[in-house]
Computed example of a mutant assay.
Amino acid sequence: MLILNKNIVKLLVFSLLILVSCQQEIEEQKTNTEVSIAKDSQFSSYLQRVVMVKTAEDDVIDKSSYCTVKFPYTVTVNNEIIAINSADDYAKVVTNINANTNDDDIVKISFPVTMIYYDYEEELIENQQQYNSLLAFWNSLPELLTKINCLKVSYPIVLNVYNSSNQSASSVVISNDEAFYNFINNLTSNKLFAINYPISVKVDDHTESIYNNEQFDDAIEDAIEYCSSNNNNTFDFMGTITSNSWKVSYFYDESDKTSLYKDYQFVFKNDFTVKAVKSSIVLNGTWETKLDNGVREFKIHFDSSTPFHELDEGWKLFEFNNSQIRFRGNTSDGGLKTEYLYLTKI
């Protein structure tokens, strides 16, 4: 009987150790939730836009969100020479432009200058002719969705990398925004990476701890939605959506379903009809939009017999420019699953 009691005690102790160990493992998973990220994922594109070069601030000078002019340099506006030594000096250019309604307000850059592109590449521009060619090239491309402001990553961070080709694992320490951008940019299709959580991010003037991809994604989307420098309040939604043809560049509803709409061209008419055209296939539908407490709402409807009926959601405008319109739909599973519809100008 005594031996049995000892065995019971041993079993209880062993069970307690397993329970404690499992609890520790669960707690560790809670505070270090690593989920693999692919280069072509939506989350990966968000990360790159958080850490890319801030290029939109000087658009009044260089007329392009694809690049920024490297400090220091000078410009001439209405015969006044203005030294641009930091971002604070952009205001001097705006003030000069707004000072008088009877001048030409043309901003002339004093060459040579070095341009820094959104992906950290640099190029020396020797003269106005070379600069005009550069602008023509950028203008031939879709308008860039620029850097996501008001959120900064605190470094260093550790990324764990898995190579599916040789089933090897490694890790890399990232020390700044440029290194993070280049890491994602140079990632190949056979590699996935995971962020070693927790990490810290600075949102405006306060610091937040991030414990998993979902929390990081939420913080980024909050920055897009609520940071004033990420919002374009002058966007003409009706004029833009009805004056161009569009394709579905991303549709997510529990899974990536973009391929359902591959090669279809969408045309939205002022009479609120919409056509989806692919070769000889023409699908007809309707659309509607309204402003609700300052939020642009959008609905699109196709017949239920077509695969396009899945687009029939209550969408809300999330991000936009003249080349891309992004909507966000319903959220489920405690905020972990959100529907997305992205339109890109053809």
Score class of each variant (00 low, 15 high):
51 V>R: 00
34 E>F: 01
54 K>Q: 12
54 K>T: 09
137 F>A: 12
113 V>H: 05
118 Y>G: 00
69 V>P: 01
73 Y>L: 04
105 D>C: 09
121 E>K: 14
140 S>A: 12
46 Y>P: 00
78 N>A: 02
70 K>N: 05
165 S>I: 02
122 E>T: 14
161 V>G: 00
76 T>V: 15
39 K>R: 12
40 D>T: 12
109 I>C: 09
57 E>I: 09
158 V>N: 09
84 I>G: 03
121 E>L: 12
61 I>G: 00
62 D>L: 01
42 Q>E: 13
157 I>H: 02
141 L>A: 10
128 Q>E: 15
61 I>D: 00
121 E>A: 12
108 K>Q: 13
39 K>W: 02
65 S>A: 07
146 T>S: 13
110 S>E: 15
114 T>S: 09
63 K>M: 08
49 R>P: 06
56 A>E: 08
143 E>V: 13
112 P>V: 15
90 Y>D: 04
130 Q>I: 14
118 Y>Q: 08
130 Q>M: 15
125 I>F: 05
115 M>N: 05
87 A>Q: 14
75 V>Q: 00
145 L>D: 10
46 Y>H: 10
65 S>L: 05
81 I>F: 05
124 L>C: 13
33 T>G: 00
121 E>S: 14
96 N>P: 03
78 N>F: 10
47 L>R: 01
112 P>H: 13
146 T>F: 03
81 I>L: 12
74 T>P: 02
35 V>H: 03
126 E>A: 15
108 K>N: 13
165 S>N: 08
73 Y>D: 08
45 S>P: 04
38 A>Q: 11
163 N>P: 00
122 E>S: 14
58 D>S: 10
110 S>Y: 11
157 I>M: 04
143 E>T: 11
146 T>D: 02
72 P>M: 04
162 Y>F: 10
45 S>I: 02
71 F>S: 03
62 D>I: 00
38 A>C: 04
100 N>Q: 11
143 E>H: 05
57 E>T: 09
109 I>E: 08
39 K>E: 07
36 S>T: 05
120 Y>L: 11
93 V>Q: 03
42 Q>F: 13
58 D>F: 05
159 L>M: 07
109 I>H: 09
52 M>I: 06
156 P>L: 06
48 Q>E: 12
